[in-house]
């Protein structure tokens, strides 16, 4: 149950509260470049979400199985050349950026082939934007966040499992879609407005993006609020001090103390 709550809050955080575009500033180039029409923006958002999920799957697997110190595949291969201990401490994280960017390019190639075969109309309407998804910061950012939550944690039990990695990436992509679709809707309206000449194009898009970011700031703290609503607050929890003899004092929560007292 706790795990599902964690996943739900992670999804909410990635999609809305810490939105990829409006909080982390990744994926700005398509945000400004592709957001002129709602249907194009929605298509771009879906393509990015699709690529990000494949890339997340690839990067999580490669990081956990090959790159981190003590990873199964690398220590197995190394055990043929080195002692067991040396093999277990092989650390390949220095190659992580190269591995991620190539797995992203391959994911994009894969998606391109798939779309060309099964959705030729969509492929034609995307034109050059599909290969350009490779340079979309959002996808590399998702991979980097997954890496820092696997390789960068003190306690190995806190490392992200596949579920968390996938939820974070997919909902991050959905958040990107949300932001880009909202922006394209606003820009369609702006087409018929009297924007001053120096601000036409990127400048007004950025200013509108700023106001959007301001609006999304209102979601700040929602996930921690939900989390706190679901867990008791130690700062004001009712507790009792029990004397367990030999001068040992023990502080228990009121509920625990009562349930212990009721037991024969």
């Amino acid at each position: 149950m706790n795990y599902l709550i964690d996943l739900g809050l992670l999804a909410l955080s990635a999609a809305v509260i810490n939105n990829f575009v409006l909080y982390y500033f990744v994926g700005i180039c398509p945000f400004i470049g592709v957001s002129k029409r709602v249907d194009m923006a929605f298509g771009m958002g879906c393509a990015v979400t699709f690529v990000i999920s494949i890339a997340a799957l690839l990067s999580w697997s490669i990081t956990t199985l090959v790159l981190v110190p003590g990873a199964p595949v690398s220590s197995f291969v190394a055990s043929f050349f080195l002692s067991k201990e040396a093999a277990a401490s092989i650390d390949l994280t220095v190659l992580s950026y190269i591995v991620y960017i190539f797995s992203i390019s391959s994911s994009v190639q894969f998606v391109e082939m798939y779309v060309r075969k099964f959705f030729p109309f969509l492929y034609r309407s995307f034109g050059v934007f599909l290969p350009l998804i490779t340079t979309n910061c959002a996808i590399l950012f998702a991979c980097l966040t997954i890496m820092s939550n696997i390789a960068g944690v003190d306690n190995p039990a806190d490392a992200w499992d596949l579920g968390r990695a996938l939820v974070f990436s997919i909902f991050g992509g959905l958040g990107f879609t949300l932001a880009i679709v909202i922006m394209s809707g606003i820009r369609e309206e702006l087409e018929i407005c009297d924007v001053p000449k120096p601000f036409q194009g990127a400048a007004i898009t950025l200013i509108v993006g700023g106001i959007l970011a301001l609006a999304f700031m209102g979601f700040n703290g929602v996930d921690s609020g939900i989390r706190r609503a679901l867990t008791p607050d130690p700062a004001i929890e009712k507790t009792v001090l029990l004397d367990q003899g030999e001068g040992r004092l023990c502080r228990l929560s009121l509920d625990t103390a009562l349930s212990q007292a009721r037991r024969p």
């Binding site: 130690p234 700062a235 004001i236 929890e237 507790t239 001090l241 004092l249 502080r251």
Partner: peptide, 13 residues
């Protein structure tokens, strides 16, 4: 503010 606080009761904000 936390310096020197006793451990006997939980702190309240």
């Amino acid at each position: 503010q936390f310096e020197g606080r006793s451990l006997s009761s939980p702190l309240v904000v």
